[in-house]
Design a binder for these strands. Structure first.
Lengths: 211, 211
DNA sequence: GCATTACGCTACGGGTCGTAGCGAAAGCAC
DNA sequence: GTGCTTTCGCTACGACCCGTAGCGTAATGC
């Protein structure tokens, strides 16, 4: 979020209900209008607040949509399904379900596009959206190591590199499938993706044998 | 493109130079301003044409940027490097190099985001950008089959599904790495990605052993 | 009550949109 | 050359959205 009433503060506190209403109104506007036709005046009207109130809390459309979309990913969990394969399939299906929602589709890629020219925005996206997803990768690996499905890490740097790779592959594949190919990331597809991933990870860390 | 002087046509022909200038100006504006601050009036000025001329050829910002970005992918080739691994690494590095350019970064994801609410736009993106990339996957597989690196296809439907999966994984991973993680898809990363892919593809088509 | 901060509302200059209308330019048919 | 057709550059226009300033009011802590 952006402003949680600074504890030891005098004066009228900010309405927490307003934040909730604004973010919900933003998602509703994304569904109805999409990114480009979404206007802050319209969001304010939908939320039942004055336009000035909205501007006092968010710097602009980009920041507002990031926060509105970020809430969608709060529900992401890594349930223990007993095996690494099942864990991966479970979390990927959750991720796919979120991305299938129109407010996520139209909002997420738009702010990512804008973030290529705005470092502060990219950092905001990273901390409030991307980092939460990435954590699931690390948790999943740790759990698999506990189960004995994956060997313990030897080189920390190389382990981090692998985690980054896996994250980009999984998240990127689901996003591309959903938004570019415009086809559902359903159970069958996720099963295929998981299999490619697990087999691919079974390969030793390369390091040599170059082309 | 959008309009190539319809052969048997009377009247003053459209200036082909104007098309070129407009698309180049669009890319330049993407670099300088990004997607959201790009205005058609500014593009027209940069291209040295009247704003009305631009509107006579493109319906709006979305279509214009799609065409401008699509030209960036014209240079994508699949050079024969002798092995499937080398071929993959080569084409992925090309793809990464294009995505590293600021006009591609800011333009591509923006139109993809818009395409989630505009079927005609998605179709335009598909035919002029995505399909060209996908063809490389099919060519690469065919070449590997000729070399004997991959077995010939048995089930055509399953072969198509695998190609779609590979395409989403590769393109999605590179896009995610470049735009979301905001780190370069350099030689080392591409080597790791390729190894995961090749090992993953070595797995039999599943169908059983389900979670 | 008093200071302080948030809120709703109105109004504003500035910018972009997409289009209409006009005269001039560049082709083709004859 | 004379017409016909289409494109081009230019200007002007109403409509919309932006982001902010100003003001009076509401809600909290002291």
């Amino acid at each position: 979020m952006q402003s949680s009433t600074p504890a030891g503060r005098t004066g009228r506190p900010r309405s927490a209900a307003a934040d909730t209403a604004i973010l919900a109104a933003t998602r509703a506007a994304l569904v109805d209008l999409g990114w480009s036709k979404l206007t802050l005046g319209d969001v304010a009207t939908r939320a039942g607040v004055a336009k000035t109130t909205l501007y006092r809390r968010w710097a602009g459309k980009n920041e507002l949509v990031v926060d509105a979309v970020a809430e969608l990913f709060d529900e992401l969990r890594l349930p223990d399904r007993g095996s690494l394969a099942a864990d991966i399939e479970g979390v990927v299906l959750q991720f796919a379900a979120i991305l299938a929602r129109p407010e996520a589709k139209s909002g997420l890629m738009a702010v990512v596009a804008e973030s290529t020219r705005d470092d502060a925005l990219r950092e905001r996206i990273r901390t409030s959206i991307v980092e939460r997803q990435k954590r699931l990768v690390l948790e999943g690996r740790a759990r698999a190591q506990t189960r004995g499905e994956l060997p313990p890490e030897t080189d920390p740097a190389e382990a981090a590199r692998t985690a980054d790779l896996i994250f980009d592959v999984v998240a990127g594949a689901v996003v591309h499938r959903t938004l570019v190919s415009a086809e559902p990331a359903d159970g069958e597809w996720v099963r295929d993706l998981t299999q490619v991933l697990l087999w691919g990870l079974a390969s030793q860390p390369a390091e040599s044998d170059g082309g």
